[in-house]
């Protein structure tokens, strides 16, 4: 028997009178509880199929809804109990896409800690499966950009371009995307932290090595910011990588 999903029953569908007497019999309280039925017509079984097509999504079919994953999940336990990996898998398998859509505000919050995958007794790669659910939803236009999606995209495109990532670019590039005004030098268009409008913690972080005269650290990071570290034998491989990613629809729309 499936676990009864209380969250699938909207409050309007629950009828229950405090006081009720029918034919002289007192049926007050829970005795008269009625849940109005609801017919689900807009389910989409192709949704689960599409998830299973990806090698990291196919273990979704092994789930038997025991909820070990949810019980282990720190986002569920310490942040918001609406975040429920077992439930997302349940909805995805039934193809109840609209119910998933109602939960997009929490669905992206998974921190990839892999407690769920580690403990799943059925060998479901839970974390991977959840990411594939999001990926498929995004591809089908069922959800827009969410914060971690923007970051993933930003990160991945930097890897694709250079073969390597650079901490300064990620940090300041991300701050810029968040709406902070990052000052750049006129020639190379690289960020100049000190004249930028950034939060105090970040300013203090950047000034620590300067205050302490940690010259070699400053030089190394400045060098990397000016000349992005690159993988040398990259161009040919990059083309293949780009093509594969395009085929998967992994590159930013229009980019």
């Amino acid at each position: 028997m499936p676990i009864h999903e209380r969250s699938l029953i909207e409050s309007e569908r629950v009828l229950r009178k405090e006081r009720l007497v029918i034919d002289g019999i007192d049926v007050s309280g829970d005795w008269n509880l009625i849940i109005l039925p609801r017919t689900v017509e807009d389910y989409d079984l192709d949704f689960a199929k599409e998830i299973m097509e990806s090698p990291d999504g196919k273990t979704i079919q092994q789930c038997y809804q025991c909820s070990y994953c949810t019980a282990s999940c720190p986002v569920h336990n310490y942040w918001d109990d609406r975040y429920n990996p077992r439930h997302f898998i349940y909805l995805a398998r039934l193809g109840m896409v609209d119910e998933l859509q109602k939960r997009v505000d929490v669905m992206w919050r998974c921190v990839s800690c892999h407690k769920c995958t580690h403990r799943c007794p059925k060998g479901v790669l839970v974390e991977d499966v959840l990411k594939v659910i999001l990926r498929v939803m995004y591809k089908r236009g069922l959800i827009g950009d969410y914060p971690s999606k923007k970051f993933d995209q930003f990160f991945t495109e930097s890897v694709l371009e250079y073969g390597r990532i650079e901490d300064g670019e990620l940090l300041f590039g991300w701050m810029e995307k968040q709406g902070y005004k990052i000052k750049k030098d006129p020639i190379l268009r690289k960020p100049i932290p000190f004249f930028s409008d950034i939060p105090r913690w970040l300013k203090d972080m950047v000034s620590k090595p300067i205050k302490e005269g940690n010259i070699s650290f400053i030089m190394l990071n400045a060098k990397h910011m000016l000349f992005h570290p690159r993988t040398k034998e990259w161009n040919k491989f990059k083309q293949v990588l780009r093509r594969v990613m395009e085929e998967e629809g992994a590159l930013a729309k229009g980019g």
């Binding site: 993933d152 991945t156 034998e233 491989f237 594969v244």
Partner: peptide, 25 residues
């Protein structure tokens, strides 16, 4: 020598084959 980024925890969310390739290289 001349390794590339592993894709970390980010790239795997946008591309499956891409991360396989990055690590296989």
């Amino acid at each position: 020598e001349d390794y590339n980024c592993c894709g970390a925890m980010e790239s795997k969310n946008v591309t499956f084959m891409g991360t396989m390739l990055l690590n296989a290289r």
